[in-house]
């Protein structure tokens, strides 16, 4: 099983401004310290091996969209703005023979998780079958409403793909495509759902975004510890600091790196991917949050280490 991150930003897409790129280049030039590179490949190796990620790369700015590669059919979590690029890439794969079947799993239907759907090219292919799975019974309403004339020029009924909606229930395993899927209800405005995908080899990935673990409802966390149990990769909403999530941003529906690490420790999960990055954060801010998360994991570790990675647009993780 592979996990590909097509959009990792929370709430709103962001883009790098010219000054941010200039500063990355300037920092790289200072780090190179007059070194000469024979060709672009040698320069790329320098960027990969010797520059911090926040200097030599970027975490990206597309909103939530994560592909789970398992079996012959596409599996995708959420339709944030990252779904546009995924759709183009998927069409290219279909042109090379990939099955034109998509299983979409929706955490919820807030703006940043559906804004990619009108730009998701496979919806215009009549040979394509798209099944939209959700814990929400009003999934179709949410996607149709987004394409009403007041919001978008292309109506939902103009889409050519064979689109269907399936409402899933918590507490039941579903065999969908090449995986078994379970879901858990999460605390978020109008609810959200987390998903656990398990492949035939027993490898598992949890996608748990837009999930607030409330300061006065810590008794609810045992269910998440069980849901994350022994998972190979847990993708978690880590948008805020713990202090923010318990004060100024309480009830905004998001969680922190610190709570995610504690839950994964208790669940004895193997890897945690920090996800749904705060849109006001620069690359340097996200990198700092990642480094702090690694340190917190070290400080609070009681058993096996938890690998803490930081999701970025374009990252592929082998599970």
């Amino acid at each position: 099983m592979k996990v590909r991150f097509w959009g990792t930003r929370g709430s709103l897409p962001v883009a790098q401004k010219a000054a941010a790129i200039r500063d990355k280049i300037a920092t790289a030039l200072v780090a190179a310290d007059g070194r000469r590179f024979a060709d672009l490949d040698e320069a790329r190796t320098f960027a990969d091996d010797e520059l911090e990620f926040a200097v030599g790369g970027t975490y990206g700015g597309a909103t939530s969209c994560v592909e789970i590669e398992a079996g012959d059919e596409f599996i995708l979590c959420d339709l944030g703005s990252g779904a546009r690029e995924f759709g183009l890439d998927a069409m290219a794969r279909c042109a090379r023979g990939h099955a034109r079947v998509y299983h979409l799993f929706m955490s919820h239907f807030h703006w940043d998780h559906i804004m990619g759907f009108p730009f998701f090219v496979p919806v215009f292919d009549p040979e394509t079958k798209i099944v939209i799975h959700s814990g929400h019974a009003d999934a179709e309403l949410a996607l149709r409403r987004q394409q009403e004339e007041i919001s978008f020029p292309v109506a939902f009924d103009w889409l050519r793909a064979q689109i269907s909606f399936v409402t899933l229930e918590t507490g039941k395993p579903y065999a969908i495509g090449a995986v078994t899927v379970e879901l858990i209800e999460q605390n978020h405005s109008h609810k959200s759902y987390g998903y656990r995908f398990t492949d035939a080899a027993g490898k598992s990935v949890v996608y748990s975004t837009d999930s607030e673990h409330k300061v006065d409802r810590m008794d609810q966390e045992a269910a998440f510890v069980a849901f994350f149990g022994d998972c190979d990769l847990v993708i978690c909403d880590t948008m805020y600091s713990l202090a923010d999530s318990a004060s100024m941003k309480e009830d905004w529906g998001h969680s922190s790196n610190v709570v995610a690490i504690d839950l994964c420790h208790q669940a004895q999960a193997k890897r945690l991917a920090l996800f749904h990055h705060e849109p006001t954060y620069s690359d340097a801010d996200i990198q700092r949050m990642h480094q702090e998360s690694i340190r917190y994991e070290e400080l609070t570790r009681e058993a096996a280490p938890l690998a803490v990675i930081c999701a970025y647009d374009g990252l592929t993780v082998e599970v």
Partner: peptide, 15 residues
């Protein structure tokens, strides 16, 4: 030292 780091990482030293 450990608690100082945890307070900083969680930003509890701000609240």
């Amino acid at each position: 030292q450990i608690m100082r780091e945890i307070l900083a990482i969680s930003r509890y030293d701000k609240v």
